[in-house]
Design a binder for these strands. Sequence first.
DNA 1: AATACAAGCGCG
DNA 2: AAAGCGCGCTTGTATT
Length: 568
Amino acid sequence: MSAPPWTIVARDDDGAVLVTVDGRGAEQARRRVALAELPSALGDDVRPVWNDTAQWYPALLDAGMTLARCRDLRLSHAILRDSALVDAPPLRAATAWDAGPSTVSGAPSPALFELDELAPGIPDRVDEVLAEFARQQAAVDGSRDPGRLRLLLAAESAGALVAAELHAAGVPWDRGVHEAILTDVLGGRPGPGSHAPRAEELATRIRELLGDPQASLDSQPKLLRALHRVGVLASSTSRWELAEHDHPVVAPLLEYKRLTRLESANGWNWLDEWAGGGRFRPVYVPGGVVTGRWASSGGGALQLPRQLRPAVRADEGWLLVVADVAQLEPRVLAAMSGDLALADAARGTDLYQGIVASGVVGTRQEAKIAVLGAMYGGTTGDSGRLVPALRRAYPRAMALVDEAARVGEEGGVVSTWLGRSAPPPPASWHRVQQRAADPDADDADRARAVRAARDRGRFTRNFVVQGTAAEWALAWLADLRGRLAALPVVPEDRRAPLSGVALGGRAHLAFFLHDEIVLHAPEEQAELAAQAVRDAADAATRLLFGTFPVDFPLDLRISRDAGKALLE
DNA sequence: AATACAAGCGCG
DNA sequence: AAAGCGCGCTTGTATT
Protein backbone atom coordinates (compact mmCIF):
# COMPACT_ATOMS: atom_id res chain seq x y z
CA MET A 1 0.00 0.00 0.00
CA SER A 2 1.64 3.21 -1.13
CA ALA A 3 0.99 6.50 0.57
CA PRO A 4 -1.05 9.00 -1.41
CA PRO A 5 0.81 12.03 -2.74
CA TRP A 6 0.99 15.27 -0.83
CA THR A 7 -0.98 18.08 -2.43
CA ILE A 8 -0.52 21.60 -1.19
CA VAL A 9 -3.89 23.36 -1.17
CA ALA A 10 -3.65 27.13 -1.07
CA ARG A 11 -5.39 30.24 -2.30
CA ASP A 12 -4.64 32.88 -4.81
CA ASP A 13 -6.63 35.96 -5.68
CA ASP A 14 -9.54 34.21 -7.31
CA GLY A 15 -9.24 30.50 -6.76
CA ALA A 16 -7.22 27.68 -5.37
CA VAL A 17 -3.75 26.46 -6.23
CA LEU A 18 -2.94 22.77 -6.03
CA VAL A 19 0.70 21.80 -5.92
CA THR A 20 1.82 18.22 -5.94
CA VAL A 21 4.98 17.92 -3.85
CA ASP A 22 7.28 15.22 -2.62
CA GLY A 23 7.90 14.42 1.01
CA ARG A 24 10.33 17.29 1.39
CA GLY A 25 8.01 19.82 -0.15
CA ALA A 26 9.72 19.99 -3.55
CA GLU A 27 7.28 20.97 -6.25
CA GLN A 28 6.37 18.43 -8.91
CA ALA A 29 3.27 19.85 -10.55
CA ARG A 30 1.03 22.87 -10.14
CA ARG A 31 -2.40 23.85 -11.32
CA ARG A 32 -5.04 26.41 -10.57
CA VAL A 33 -8.70 25.56 -10.05
CA ALA A 34 -11.83 27.52 -9.27
CA LEU A 35 -12.94 27.02 -5.69
CA ALA A 36 -16.19 25.46 -6.81
CA GLU A 37 -14.18 22.84 -8.71
CA LEU A 38 -12.07 21.94 -5.72
CA PRO A 39 -13.91 18.74 -4.70
CA SER A 40 -13.55 17.12 -8.10
CA ALA A 41 -10.08 18.54 -8.62
CA LEU A 42 -8.86 17.00 -5.37
CA GLY A 43 -10.39 13.57 -5.78
CA ASP A 44 -10.43 10.81 -3.21
CA ASP A 45 -6.90 9.49 -3.29
CA VAL A 46 -5.11 12.65 -2.34
CA ARG A 47 -3.59 13.97 0.84
CA PRO A 48 -4.15 17.69 1.11
CA VAL A 49 -1.66 19.83 2.96
CA TRP A 50 -3.46 22.98 3.97
CA ASN A 51 -3.18 25.80 6.42
CA ASP A 52 -6.25 24.95 8.45
CA THR A 53 -8.73 22.12 8.06
CA ALA A 54 -11.55 24.21 9.51
CA GLN A 55 -11.18 26.62 6.59
CA TRP A 56 -11.31 24.06 3.79
CA TYR A 57 -12.98 20.84 4.80
CA PRO A 58 -16.54 21.98 5.67
CA ALA A 59 -17.11 23.10 2.11
CA LEU A 60 -15.83 19.77 0.78
CA LEU A 61 -18.20 17.97 3.13
CA ASP A 62 -21.00 20.17 1.92
CA ALA A 63 -20.15 19.10 -1.60
CA GLY A 64 -20.52 15.48 -0.57
CA MET A 65 -16.87 14.60 -0.27
CA THR A 66 -14.86 13.02 2.52
CA LEU A 67 -11.11 12.67 2.75
CA ALA A 68 -9.06 9.79 4.08
CA ARG A 69 -6.25 11.97 5.44
CA CYS A 70 -4.67 15.39 5.37
CA ARG A 71 -1.95 17.50 6.97
CA ASP A 72 -3.16 20.43 9.02
CA LEU A 73 -0.25 22.84 9.14
CA ARG A 74 -1.60 25.05 11.89
CA LEU A 75 -2.06 22.14 14.29
CA SER A 76 1.21 20.54 13.21
CA HIS A 77 3.04 23.81 13.69
CA ALA A 78 1.86 24.08 17.28
CA ILE A 79 3.12 20.57 18.01
CA LEU A 80 6.50 20.96 16.31
CA ARG A 81 7.07 24.41 17.75
CA ASP A 82 6.99 23.08 21.30
CA SER A 83 8.13 19.50 20.88
CA ALA A 84 11.24 18.59 22.82
CA LEU A 85 11.98 16.02 20.10
CA VAL A 86 12.76 18.87 17.72
CA ASP A 87 16.15 20.54 18.16
CA ALA A 88 16.64 24.25 17.66
CA PRO A 89 13.56 24.47 15.55
CA PRO A 90 13.14 27.28 13.06
CA LEU A 91 9.46 26.96 13.98
CA ARG A 92 10.02 28.45 17.41
CA ALA A 93 10.11 32.06 16.24
CA ALA A 94 6.71 33.68 16.51
CA THR A 95 4.95 33.76 13.14
CA ALA A 96 1.47 33.94 11.72
CA TRP A 97 1.38 30.15 11.99
CA ASP A 98 0.94 30.54 15.72
CA ALA A 99 -2.64 31.68 15.15
CA GLY A 100 -5.12 30.25 17.58
CA PRO A 101 -7.77 27.80 16.57
CA SER A 102 -10.28 28.85 14.00
CA THR A 103 -13.54 27.04 14.29
CA VAL A 104 -15.95 25.51 11.89
CA SER A 105 -18.72 28.03 11.60
CA GLY A 106 -22.12 27.20 12.95
CA ALA A 107 -23.59 28.27 9.64
CA PRO A 108 -22.07 26.08 6.93
CA SER A 109 -22.83 27.55 3.56
CA PRO A 110 -21.38 28.08 0.12
CA ALA A 111 -19.99 31.27 1.61
CA LEU A 112 -17.13 29.17 2.94
CA PHE A 113 -15.86 29.07 -0.62
CA GLU A 114 -15.73 32.83 -0.77
CA LEU A 115 -12.40 34.51 -0.48
CA ASP A 116 -13.25 36.96 2.24
CA GLU A 117 -14.50 34.30 4.61
CA LEU A 118 -11.05 33.44 5.86
CA ALA A 119 -10.28 33.80 9.50
CA PRO A 120 -7.52 36.35 9.70
CA GLY A 121 -4.06 35.36 10.60
CA ILE A 122 -3.23 31.95 9.22
CA PRO A 123 -1.23 32.22 6.00
CA ASP A 124 -3.02 30.82 2.97
CA ARG A 125 -0.87 31.85 -0.04
CA VAL A 126 0.82 29.05 -1.86
CA ASP A 127 4.38 30.25 -1.29
CA GLU A 128 3.81 30.53 2.43
CA VAL A 129 2.06 27.18 2.68
CA LEU A 130 4.77 25.46 0.65
CA ALA A 131 7.49 27.01 2.76
CA GLU A 132 5.83 26.03 6.01
CA PHE A 133 5.34 22.46 4.84
CA ALA A 134 9.00 22.23 3.88
CA ARG A 135 10.05 23.64 7.27
CA GLN A 136 7.86 21.16 9.08
CA GLN A 137 9.07 18.18 7.08
CA ALA A 138 12.65 19.19 7.73
CA ALA A 139 11.90 19.57 11.43
CA VAL A 140 10.37 16.10 11.58
CA ASP A 141 13.11 14.47 9.52
CA GLY A 142 15.79 16.07 11.67
CA SER A 143 14.09 15.32 14.96
CA ARG A 144 15.10 12.75 17.52
CA ASP A 145 12.16 10.52 16.65
CA PRO A 146 10.68 11.19 13.20
CA GLY A 147 8.49 8.11 13.43
CA ARG A 148 6.64 9.23 16.52
CA LEU A 149 6.21 12.77 15.29
CA ARG A 150 4.87 11.58 11.93
CA LEU A 151 2.35 9.47 13.80
CA LEU A 152 1.37 12.39 15.97
CA LEU A 153 0.95 14.81 13.08
CA ALA A 154 -1.09 12.27 11.15
CA ALA A 155 -3.31 11.60 14.14
CA GLU A 156 -3.74 15.28 14.94
CA SER A 157 -4.64 16.05 11.33
CA ALA A 158 -7.05 13.13 11.11
CA GLY A 159 -8.63 14.53 14.26
CA ALA A 160 -9.19 17.81 12.47
CA LEU A 161 -11.08 15.94 9.76
CA VAL A 162 -13.13 14.12 12.39
CA ALA A 163 -13.96 17.38 14.17
CA ALA A 164 -15.34 18.91 11.00
CA GLU A 165 -17.28 15.74 10.20
CA LEU A 166 -18.73 15.58 13.70
CA HIS A 167 -19.97 19.13 13.35
CA ALA A 168 -21.41 18.46 9.93
CA ALA A 169 -23.17 15.29 11.01
CA GLY A 170 -24.28 16.46 14.44
CA VAL A 171 -25.65 14.41 17.29
CA PRO A 172 -29.16 13.14 16.62
CA TRP A 173 -31.17 14.87 19.31
CA ASP A 174 -34.74 14.09 20.28
CA ARG A 175 -36.46 17.28 21.28
CA GLY A 176 -39.40 15.39 22.77
CA VAL A 177 -37.20 13.32 25.07
CA HIS A 178 -35.27 16.40 26.18
CA GLU A 179 -38.50 18.30 26.92
CA ALA A 180 -39.96 15.34 28.78
CA ILE A 181 -36.91 15.24 31.04
CA LEU A 182 -37.07 18.98 31.64
CA THR A 183 -40.79 18.87 32.39
CA ASP A 184 -40.37 15.91 34.69
CA VAL A 185 -37.56 17.53 36.67
CA LEU A 186 -38.54 21.20 36.52
CA GLY A 187 -42.31 21.01 36.26
CA GLY A 188 -42.56 23.18 33.17
CA ARG A 189 -40.93 25.98 31.26
CA PRO A 190 -40.14 29.06 33.36
CA GLY A 191 -41.90 32.31 32.58
CA PRO A 192 -39.88 35.44 31.93
CA GLY A 193 -38.16 36.64 35.08
CA SER A 194 -38.93 33.53 37.07
CA HIS A 195 -37.71 29.99 37.53
CA ALA A 196 -39.48 26.78 36.60
CA PRO A 197 -42.33 25.68 38.90
CA ARG A 198 -40.36 23.09 40.91
CA ALA A 199 -37.56 25.60 41.48
CA GLU A 200 -40.02 28.29 42.54
CA GLU A 201 -41.67 25.92 45.02
CA LEU A 202 -38.28 25.13 46.49
CA ALA A 203 -37.42 28.83 46.61
CA THR A 204 -40.54 29.54 48.66
CA ARG A 205 -39.65 26.83 51.18
CA ILE A 206 -36.05 27.96 51.35
CA ARG A 207 -37.06 31.57 52.02
CA GLU A 208 -39.37 30.39 54.82
CA LEU A 209 -36.53 28.41 56.37
CA LEU A 210 -34.27 31.46 56.03
CA GLY A 211 -36.96 33.60 57.67
CA ASP A 212 -36.74 36.10 54.82
CA PRO A 213 -39.46 36.14 52.15
CA GLN A 214 -37.32 38.44 50.01
CA ALA A 215 -34.11 36.43 50.22
CA SER A 216 -32.15 36.33 46.99
CA LEU A 217 -31.05 32.80 46.22
CA ASP A 218 -29.23 33.52 42.97
CA SER A 219 -26.73 36.00 44.34
CA GLN A 220 -23.90 34.29 46.16
CA PRO A 221 -23.07 37.16 48.56
CA LYS A 222 -26.72 37.72 49.47
CA LEU A 223 -27.42 34.03 49.89
CA LEU A 224 -24.36 33.65 52.08
CA ARG A 225 -25.49 36.50 54.35
CA ALA A 226 -28.96 34.99 54.64
CA LEU A 227 -27.43 31.64 55.57
CA HIS A 228 -25.25 33.26 58.22
CA ARG A 229 -28.33 34.87 59.75
CA VAL A 230 -29.83 31.44 60.42
CA GLY A 231 -26.60 30.02 61.75
CA VAL A 232 -25.21 28.25 58.69
CA LEU A 233 -21.70 29.67 58.88
CA ALA A 234 -20.41 28.47 55.52
CA SER A 235 -17.61 30.42 53.88
CA SER A 236 -18.97 29.86 50.39
CA THR A 237 -22.18 28.69 48.80
CA SER A 238 -20.60 25.77 47.02
CA ARG A 239 -22.42 22.49 47.10
CA TRP A 240 -19.82 20.49 48.98
CA GLU A 241 -19.50 23.06 51.72
CA LEU A 242 -23.23 23.50 52.23
CA ALA A 243 -23.56 19.73 52.47
CA GLU A 244 -21.36 19.76 55.57
CA HIS A 245 -23.87 21.83 57.52
CA ASP A 246 -26.70 20.23 59.39
CA HIS A 247 -29.62 22.59 58.85
CA PRO A 248 -33.05 22.02 57.29
CA VAL A 249 -32.38 24.64 54.63
CA VAL A 250 -29.44 22.72 53.17
CA ALA A 251 -31.31 19.91 51.39
CA PRO A 252 -33.85 22.09 49.57
CA LEU A 253 -31.13 24.59 48.71
CA LEU A 254 -28.95 21.93 47.09
CA GLU A 255 -31.95 20.70 45.15
CA TYR A 256 -32.72 24.27 44.10
CA LYS A 257 -29.18 24.70 42.81
CA ARG A 258 -29.42 21.43 40.90
CA LEU A 259 -32.66 22.46 39.21
CA THR A 260 -31.67 26.02 38.34
CA ARG A 261 -28.39 24.72 36.95
CA LEU A 262 -30.21 22.38 34.57
CA GLU A 263 -32.64 25.14 33.68
CA SER A 264 -30.00 27.72 32.79
CA ALA A 265 -27.34 25.48 31.24
CA ASN A 266 -29.39 22.92 29.32
CA GLY A 267 -32.98 24.06 29.55
CA TRP A 268 -35.42 25.16 26.89
CA ASN A 269 -33.26 28.07 25.80
CA TRP A 270 -30.35 25.73 25.14
CA LEU A 271 -32.63 23.34 23.29
CA ASP A 272 -33.97 26.11 21.04
CA GLU A 273 -30.53 27.49 20.32
CA TRP A 274 -28.49 24.34 19.88
CA ALA A 275 -30.61 21.31 19.12
CA GLY A 276 -33.90 22.58 17.80
CA GLY A 277 -33.50 21.02 14.37
CA GLY A 278 -33.05 17.46 15.54
CA ARG A 279 -29.25 17.66 15.61
CA PHE A 280 -26.90 19.08 18.23
CA ARG A 281 -23.90 20.49 16.38
CA PRO A 282 -21.17 21.31 18.81
CA VAL A 283 -18.10 23.13 17.56
CA TYR A 284 -15.11 20.96 18.34
CA VAL A 285 -11.70 22.56 18.71
CA PRO A 286 -8.95 19.99 18.02
CA GLY A 287 -5.78 20.71 19.91
CA GLY A 288 -7.68 23.27 21.96
CA VAL A 289 -6.27 21.98 25.25
CA VAL A 290 -2.53 22.16 26.00
CA THR A 291 -2.42 18.42 26.57
CA GLY A 292 -3.76 17.72 23.08
CA ARG A 293 -7.28 17.06 24.15
CA TRP A 294 -9.98 18.77 22.19
CA ALA A 295 -11.84 21.76 23.50
CA SER A 296 -15.24 22.88 22.33
CA SER A 297 -16.88 26.17 21.69
CA GLY A 298 -20.57 26.83 21.89
CA GLY A 299 -23.26 24.56 23.20
CA GLY A 300 -21.11 23.11 25.94
CA ALA A 301 -20.45 19.84 24.12
CA LEU A 302 -17.99 18.72 26.75
CA GLN A 303 -20.46 19.24 29.57
CA LEU A 304 -23.62 17.52 28.38
CA PRO A 305 -25.14 16.34 31.65
CA ARG A 306 -25.52 12.58 31.82
CA GLN A 307 -29.09 13.27 32.81
CA LEU A 308 -29.79 14.38 29.22
CA ARG A 309 -28.02 11.56 27.40
CA PRO A 310 -31.34 9.79 26.67
CA ALA A 311 -32.15 12.73 24.38
CA VAL A 312 -29.37 11.50 22.11
CA ARG A 313 -31.58 9.25 20.05
CA ALA A 314 -31.03 7.58 16.71
CA ASP A 315 -33.16 8.37 13.69
CA GLU A 316 -35.91 5.97 12.69
CA GLY A 317 -34.27 2.87 11.29
CA TRP A 318 -30.90 3.82 12.78
CA LEU A 319 -29.09 2.87 15.97
CA LEU A 320 -26.41 4.32 18.19
CA VAL A 321 -23.18 2.56 18.99
CA VAL A 322 -22.03 4.04 22.29
CA ALA A 323 -18.54 3.14 23.47
CA ASP A 324 -16.17 4.36 26.11
CA VAL A 325 -12.82 3.17 27.40
CA ALA A 326 -12.74 2.14 31.01
CA GLN A 327 -9.95 3.91 32.94
CA LEU A 328 -8.09 5.07 29.86
CA GLU A 329 -5.48 7.17 31.66
CA PRO A 330 -4.07 4.61 34.12
CA ARG A 331 -3.93 2.05 31.31
CA VAL A 332 -1.98 4.53 29.22
CA LEU A 333 0.32 5.11 32.17
CA ALA A 334 0.94 1.38 32.52
CA ALA A 335 1.84 1.11 28.84
CA MET A 336 4.07 4.17 28.55
CA SER A 337 5.98 3.32 31.70
CA GLY A 338 6.24 -0.35 30.77
CA ASP A 339 4.84 -1.28 34.18
CA LEU A 340 3.89 -4.94 33.83
CA ALA A 341 2.41 -5.12 37.32
CA LEU A 342 -0.02 -2.28 36.60
CA ALA A 343 -0.76 -3.72 33.17
CA ASP A 344 -1.53 -6.97 34.90
CA ALA A 345 -3.96 -5.27 37.26
CA ALA A 346 -5.56 -3.71 34.19
CA ARG A 347 -6.03 -7.10 32.53
CA GLY A 348 -9.77 -7.33 33.25
CA THR A 349 -12.45 -4.78 32.57
CA ASP A 350 -12.00 -2.99 35.89
CA LEU A 351 -8.51 -1.76 36.64
CA TYR A 352 -9.47 -0.58 40.10
CA GLN A 353 -10.78 -4.03 41.01
CA GLY A 354 -7.57 -5.48 39.64
CA ILE A 355 -5.57 -3.32 42.02
CA VAL A 356 -7.70 -4.54 44.91
CA ALA A 357 -7.25 -8.15 43.78
CA SER A 358 -3.49 -7.64 43.89
CA GLY A 359 -3.81 -6.69 47.53
CA VAL A 360 -2.44 -3.18 47.06
CA VAL A 361 -5.38 -1.48 48.74
CA GLY A 362 -8.50 -2.77 50.42
CA THR A 363 -11.39 -1.43 48.40
CA ARG A 364 -12.24 -0.33 44.89
CA GLN A 365 -12.95 3.18 46.11
CA GLU A 366 -9.50 3.35 47.69
CA ALA A 367 -7.93 2.12 44.48
CA LYS A 368 -9.68 4.84 42.53
CA ILE A 369 -8.64 7.58 44.94
CA ALA A 370 -5.06 6.32 44.90
CA VAL A 371 -4.85 6.16 41.11
CA LEU A 372 -6.38 9.59 40.64
CA GLY A 373 -4.07 10.97 43.31
CA ALA A 374 -1.07 9.45 41.53
CA MET A 375 -1.98 11.07 38.23
CA TYR A 376 -3.16 14.41 39.61
CA GLY A 377 -0.59 14.84 42.33
CA GLY A 378 -2.82 14.48 45.35
CA THR A 379 -0.98 14.96 48.62
CA THR A 380 -3.64 15.40 51.25
CA GLY A 381 -6.38 13.32 52.78
CA ASP A 382 -7.11 9.80 51.57
CA SER A 383 -5.19 10.47 48.40
CA GLY A 384 -1.97 11.30 50.20
CA ARG A 385 -2.45 8.31 52.47
CA LEU A 386 -3.06 5.80 49.64
CA VAL A 387 -0.59 6.87 46.94
CA PRO A 388 2.45 5.40 48.79
CA ALA A 389 0.92 1.92 48.53
CA LEU A 390 0.69 2.45 44.80
CA ARG A 391 4.30 3.59 44.71
CA ARG A 392 5.38 0.31 46.29
CA ALA A 393 3.25 -1.87 44.03
CA TYR A 394 3.83 -0.04 40.74
CA PRO A 395 7.26 1.57 40.97
CA ARG A 396 7.75 2.01 37.24
CA ALA A 397 4.42 3.71 36.65
CA MET A 398 4.86 5.93 39.67
CA ALA A 399 8.43 6.77 38.70
CA LEU A 400 7.17 8.08 35.39
CA VAL A 401 4.64 10.50 36.88
CA ASP A 402 6.91 11.40 39.80
CA GLU A 403 9.70 12.25 37.37
CA ALA A 404 7.33 14.34 35.26
CA ALA A 405 6.39 16.26 38.40
CA ARG A 406 10.02 16.77 39.39
CA VAL A 407 10.94 18.10 35.96
CA GLY A 408 7.96 20.44 36.04
CA GLU A 409 8.80 21.78 39.49
CA GLU A 410 12.25 22.69 38.20
CA GLY A 411 10.84 24.53 35.24
CA GLY A 412 11.64 21.84 32.71
CA VAL A 413 9.59 20.48 29.83
CA VAL A 414 7.85 17.10 29.65
CA SER A 415 6.46 15.26 26.64
CA THR A 416 3.80 12.75 25.77
CA TRP A 417 4.48 9.33 24.29
CA LEU A 418 4.35 10.64 20.72
CA GLY A 419 6.24 13.83 21.45
CA ARG A 420 3.80 16.59 22.25
CA SER A 421 5.55 18.76 24.82
CA ALA A 422 4.11 21.00 27.46
CA PRO A 423 4.68 24.68 26.80
CA PRO A 424 7.53 25.97 28.96
CA PRO A 425 6.57 27.89 32.07
CA PRO A 426 5.81 31.56 31.39
CA ALA A 427 8.23 34.34 32.28
CA SER A 428 6.07 35.24 35.28
CA TRP A 429 6.74 31.77 36.72
CA HIS A 430 10.49 32.25 36.44
CA ARG A 431 10.23 35.70 38.02
CA VAL A 432 8.46 34.21 41.03
CA GLN A 433 11.23 31.61 41.38
CA GLN A 434 13.96 34.22 41.03
CA ARG A 435 12.38 36.50 43.59
CA ALA A 436 12.35 33.67 46.10
CA ALA A 437 16.05 33.04 45.48
CA ASP A 438 16.91 36.68 46.14
CA PRO A 439 18.66 37.34 49.49
CA ASP A 440 15.97 39.92 50.29
CA ALA A 441 13.15 37.45 49.77
CA ASP A 442 10.71 37.05 52.63
CA ASP A 443 8.68 34.04 53.68
CA ALA A 444 5.78 35.04 51.47
CA ASP A 445 8.04 35.18 48.42
CA ARG A 446 9.41 31.74 49.17
CA ALA A 447 5.99 30.29 49.87
CA ARG A 448 4.68 31.71 46.61
CA ALA A 449 7.58 30.17 44.71
CA VAL A 450 7.08 26.76 46.29
CA ARG A 451 3.38 26.88 45.51
CA ALA A 452 4.03 27.87 41.89
CA ALA A 453 6.59 25.09 41.54
CA ARG A 454 4.22 22.50 43.00
CA ASP A 455 1.40 23.74 40.75
CA ARG A 456 3.66 23.35 37.75
CA GLY A 457 4.68 19.89 38.93
CA ARG A 458 1.09 18.72 39.20
CA PHE A 459 0.45 20.09 35.73
CA THR A 460 3.40 18.30 34.12
CA ARG A 461 2.67 15.13 36.12
CA ASN A 462 -0.79 15.02 34.61
CA PHE A 463 0.27 16.33 31.21
CA VAL A 464 2.19 13.23 30.20
CA VAL A 465 -0.72 10.94 31.04
CA GLN A 466 -3.62 13.06 29.87
CA GLY A 467 -1.74 13.96 26.70
CA THR A 468 -0.85 10.37 25.86
CA ALA A 469 -4.43 9.32 26.54
CA ALA A 470 -5.51 11.98 24.05
CA GLU A 471 -3.10 10.47 21.54
CA TRP A 472 -4.58 7.02 22.04
CA ALA A 473 -8.05 8.49 21.52
CA LEU A 474 -6.95 10.29 18.35
CA ALA A 475 -5.46 7.08 17.00
CA TRP A 476 -8.72 5.31 17.84
CA LEU A 477 -10.76 7.92 15.98
CA ALA A 478 -8.43 8.02 13.01
CA ASP A 479 -8.40 4.27 12.57
CA LEU A 480 -12.13 4.02 13.12
CA ARG A 481 -13.08 6.56 10.48
CA GLY A 482 -11.05 4.60 7.96
CA ARG A 483 -12.92 1.42 8.82
CA LEU A 484 -16.28 3.18 8.64
CA ALA A 485 -15.44 4.62 5.24
CA ALA A 486 -15.10 1.04 3.98
CA LEU A 487 -18.67 0.15 4.93
CA PRO A 488 -21.15 0.00 2.06
CA VAL A 489 -23.43 2.94 1.40
CA VAL A 490 -27.03 2.08 2.16
CA PRO A 491 -29.79 2.70 -0.42
CA GLU A 492 -31.00 6.24 -0.89
CA ASP A 493 -34.20 5.78 1.09
CA ARG A 494 -32.30 4.42 4.09
CA ARG A 495 -30.00 7.40 4.51
CA ALA A 496 -29.98 9.86 7.36
CA PRO A 497 -31.20 13.34 6.54
CA LEU A 498 -27.86 15.10 6.34
CA SER A 499 -28.33 17.75 3.73
CA GLY A 500 -25.39 17.93 1.40
CA VAL A 501 -23.19 15.80 3.60
CA ALA A 502 -21.54 12.61 2.48
CA LEU A 503 -21.79 11.06 5.91
CA GLY A 504 -25.45 10.14 5.89
CA GLY A 505 -25.12 7.03 3.77
CA ARG A 506 -23.39 4.77 6.27
CA ALA A 507 -22.40 4.51 9.90
CA HIS A 508 -20.66 7.68 11.00
CA LEU A 509 -19.20 9.30 14.10
CA ALA A 510 -21.71 11.52 15.87
CA PHE A 511 -20.05 12.47 19.16
CA PHE A 512 -16.66 12.36 20.84
CA LEU A 513 -15.66 13.24 24.37
CA HIS A 514 -12.10 12.43 25.47
CA ASP A 515 -12.57 8.68 25.85
CA GLU A 516 -16.04 7.97 24.56
CA ILE A 517 -17.68 8.01 21.17
CA VAL A 518 -21.15 7.71 19.75
CA LEU A 519 -21.75 6.36 16.27
CA HIS A 520 -24.98 6.79 14.34
CA ALA A 521 -25.50 3.72 12.21
CA PRO A 522 -28.14 2.24 9.95
CA GLU A 523 -29.68 -0.70 11.78
CA GLU A 524 -28.23 -3.21 9.36
CA GLN A 525 -24.71 -1.80 9.92
CA ALA A 526 -24.78 -1.42 13.68
CA GLU A 527 -23.02 -4.70 14.44
CA LEU A 528 -20.38 -4.08 11.79
CA ALA A 529 -19.85 -0.58 13.11
CA ALA A 530 -19.53 -1.87 16.67
CA GLN A 531 -16.90 -4.35 15.55
CA ALA A 532 -15.08 -1.53 13.78
CA VAL A 533 -15.03 0.39 17.06
CA ARG A 534 -13.47 -2.59 18.85
CA ASP A 535 -10.98 -3.29 16.07
CA ALA A 536 -9.99 0.37 15.95
CA ALA A 537 -9.29 0.35 19.68
CA ASP A 538 -7.02 -2.66 19.25
CA ALA A 539 -5.30 -1.02 16.31
CA ALA A 540 -4.74 2.19 18.26
CA THR A 541 -3.18 0.22 21.12
CA ARG A 542 -0.82 -1.61 18.77
CA LEU A 543 0.06 1.56 16.90
CA LEU A 544 1.12 3.35 20.07
CA PHE A 545 2.38 0.58 22.29
CA GLY A 546 3.25 -2.27 19.95
CA THR A 547 3.14 -5.62 21.66
CA PHE A 548 3.18 -4.35 25.24
CA PRO A 549 0.54 -6.46 27.01
CA VAL A 550 -2.03 -3.88 28.05
CA ASP A 551 -5.78 -4.00 27.50
CA PHE A 552 -8.06 -1.10 26.67
CA PRO A 553 -11.46 -2.71 27.16
CA LEU A 554 -14.50 -0.93 25.81
CA ASP A 555 -17.83 -0.55 27.46
CA LEU A 556 -19.92 -0.78 24.30
CA ARG A 557 -23.61 -0.97 23.65
CA ILE A 558 -25.93 -0.70 20.72
CA SER A 559 -29.22 0.97 21.39
CA ARG A 560 -31.70 3.51 20.20
CA ASP A 561 -30.55 6.17 22.69
CA ALA A 562 -27.40 7.05 24.58
CA GLY A 563 -28.92 6.93 28.06
CA LYS A 564 -27.34 4.53 30.48
CA ALA A 565 -30.70 3.20 31.55
CA LEU A 566 -31.09 0.95 28.53
CA LEU A 567 -27.83 -0.79 29.27
CA GLU A 568 -28.94 -2.61 32.39
C1' DA B 1 -23.61 50.30 28.49
C1' DA B 2 -19.95 47.38 27.78
C1' DT B 3 -16.40 44.47 29.62
C1' DA B 4 -13.76 41.62 33.03
C1' DC B 5 -13.72 38.61 36.73
C1' DA B 6 -14.92 35.04 40.16
C1' DA B 7 -17.89 31.62 41.77
C1' DG B 8 -20.04 27.63 40.95
C1' DC B 9 -20.94 23.37 38.49
C1' DG B 10 -21.33 20.41 34.37
C1' DC B 11 -18.02 16.95 31.76
C1' DG B 12 -13.63 13.65 31.15
C1' DA C 1 -17.09 14.36 50.32
C1' DA C 2 -13.43 16.58 48.09
C1' DA C 3 -8.93 16.00 46.94
C1' DG C 4 -5.27 16.30 42.80
C1' DC C 5 -5.44 17.49 36.47
C1' DG C 6 -7.81 19.53 32.10
C1' DC C 7 -11.85 22.23 30.15
C1' DG C 8 -16.78 25.74 28.90
C1' DC C 9 -20.80 28.16 30.26
C1' DT C 10 -24.02 31.06 33.08
C1' DT C 11 -24.78 34.23 36.50
C1' DG C 12 -24.03 38.17 39.42
C1' DT C 13 -20.96 41.69 40.65
C1' DA C 14 -17.29 44.94 40.07
C1' DT C 15 -14.97 47.95 37.01
C1' DT C 16 -14.53 51.14 33.33
